[in-house]
Amino acid sequence: MTAVTAETAAASTYQARFDAAVAADERIEPRDWMPDDYRATLIRQMAQHAHSEIIGMQPEANWITRAPSLRRKAILMAKVQDEAGHGLYLYSATETLGASRDELLDKLHSGRQKYSSIFNYPTLTWADVGAIGWLVDGAAITNQVPLCRCSYGPYARAMVRVCKEESFHQRQGYELLLALSQGTQAQHEMAQDAVNRWWWPSLMMFGPPDDASAHSAQSMAWKIKRHSNDELRQRFVDICVPQAEALGLTLPDPDLRWNEERGHHDFGAIDWEEFRQVLKGNGPCNEQRITQRRRAHEEGAWVREAAAAYAAKSASGGSGAPHESAASEGSGTKSGEAQVEATA
């Protein structure tokens, strides 16, 4: 056997092992052999997911300083903080595939990697915070729950954590809208207006229809994806209809009705041209979102550099303050284990 054929033989053994693991619903772990395309698909999808969490902070953070009660303010701050946290879990999972966070952020900032188009829509009123919680987080959860069983271990584990923490996000949005819907006339109108604006973009979050989805089939075969775009979209619509009724709000679709035969709701045609345009960069906030993200990163550069310089000095016992190692520092750290007692 020549060296080349030996290599090919080894590769096909690996491929066979990988296929068998996926078929048996086992998880693929970072150091396992995996096909290059599988790795690339995961990096693309997970990075996009992480970017969405980070960009997704902006439309909601827009209302932190104007939240109309202290209770709502605390909830909103905790939610936006969670999104930063979820972005971090996802970047952390993506890094197990050999893509560094700096590299991923760089791709986000230069437009080479995308984030969910939904965040290119503006939050114009307080009710939008509720609509995002109910509809956008609702759609996200519908997408994410199956990802907890995704074939790639670190992604699945990150999603378990995210889904657990996100359970409050959708409920707070729903509760917020309910308070508005049952409030004054002006509040009710504010809620209806927000639902009118967020409904269709939320349906677009599931991605193009199955017959036009570029990546779907392969992702399903790899068990990265468990359900098709249209399947999940239908599930979401069916869930939302009775929820909207309980809210006392309507969904802005004259074609929305129960189809006895299918056992599902029929709904109107989605404006895929709008979807394509927003994806291409022509949404109402594309420019604004990425500019803010880039500015935060650029304006933070001197801070990150300072901390790195301090760490380098401390490690070399260099100038300035004497090195305080984790083992000798007073605030909660002990020798051997760098340990923090949680006070939260």
Binding site: I54, M57, Q58, A61, I64, M77, V80, Q81, A84, G85, G87, L88, Y91, Q292, R295, A296, E299, G300, A301, V303, R304
Partner: peptide
């Protein structure tokens, strides 16, 4: 600061 911090860990 939300959405403007110098590094993501600092957002949290």
């Amino acid at each position: 600061w939300a959405g403007h911090a110098p590094v993501l860990e600092e957002e949290v």
